Amino acid sequence: MTLSTYPEKSISYLYEVGLHGGIRRAADALGINPSVISRQLSSLERSLQLPLLERRGRNVVLTEAGKMLAEDFAQTSQRRKMLERQLQDLRHMRGGSINLRVGQGMVDDVVRHVVQAFSLAYPGVFVNIMSGDMQTTVMLIAKGEVDMAVSFGPAGPPGVKCLSFQRGPICAIVPPDHPLAGLTAVSASQLTQHRLIAMDEKFGLQRYINAIFKSEGIIFTPSYCCNLFSSAIALTQAGLGISFMTAQSVKAPLQRGELVAVPIDHRIAKESQCHLLRSADHRLTPAAHYLWQLLCQFFTASLEDEV
């Protein structure tokens, strides 16, 4: 049996195990049962007559043969994605394509101040804009499926090129007639006296909120949980609870007087950051490099305006 005849699915599972550092973590990321991966890899080892995994303490790592297979799979996948992108460019008669991932609370700013300017310089480039949590974003960057990203969270993740910028303060977002609307700042203990709105645990914003409450020894008990900022804003506008965002994320409703942003009186809230992310190894096209520069310039200018 030649290498080309081995099941690609089994080798892809091996790559995921190496990427995530274990069978269970790889299975969680893929949304499948760990036993499926174990059976596939055991079958692959028997076919190759080589061990592909070895246990080190509680962790499972790739053997030298496993690393060679996983690296070949990664390179082949990268070439295939490049070919798919080139074919996509031909279908759209475009001058290239860029995959950009942006945290929900920053989409409006990025589109109006970055993408708009980029499109004037590169009108023929196809731009695919997505939103999502930082954990998934980093994984997609590592796989070469995302060129660059704008994420919000407590710390820049390892394994990628990361530029961090101040984005705070994080605020309690309330309607104008809310009891907290007239305050210049609000504490975590004051917030517990009201109905609260949480975001999904994967959101960088929610990790900030959890850290604030934990540092004060207070249990964060929300009445609602959302995976869309628009849902949290709608709940707040309906008077059903307090949501948490930076003022930039709800700029339009604030300007219309529909909502009020009250800064949270806590060091973590004041020091919140957003991050520009890209692969440290992936070489950007001239168009993608220009978009990256525009992102850097915008967030640098935003930071200077805050100062």
Rank of each mutant, 00 (worst) to 15 (best):
N210Y: 08
N33I: 10
I32A: 03
V17Q: 03
V60N: 02
H178F: 06
H275Q: 04
I11T: 06
P7M: 00
Q190A: 11
E16Y: 10
A252V: 14
E145K: 10
A149K: 03
D133H: 11
I37L: 00
Q206P: 09
K67A: 10
A234T: 13
S4N: 07
L52D: 06
N33Q: 14
K81H: 15
I197R: 00
I209A: 02
N227P: 09
K161W: 13
A238M: 11
V125R: 00
D177L: 10
A261L: 08
G153Q: 07
G182S: 14
I268M: 05
Q86T: 12
R94I: 00
L69A: 01
R112M: 12
S231V: 10
F152R: 03
Q206K: 09
I218T: 04
M106A: 14
S35V: 11
D265E: 12
A185L: 04
L100C: 07
L228F: 13
L53F: 00
A261I: 05
R91A: 11
P169V: 04
Y122A: 07
Y208V: 05
S279N: 03
S302C: 12
R56Y: 11
K67P: 02
E306R: 15
R79P: 01
N128W: 06
R85F: 06
S187F: 07
Y208E: 06
G57V: 06
S43L: 13
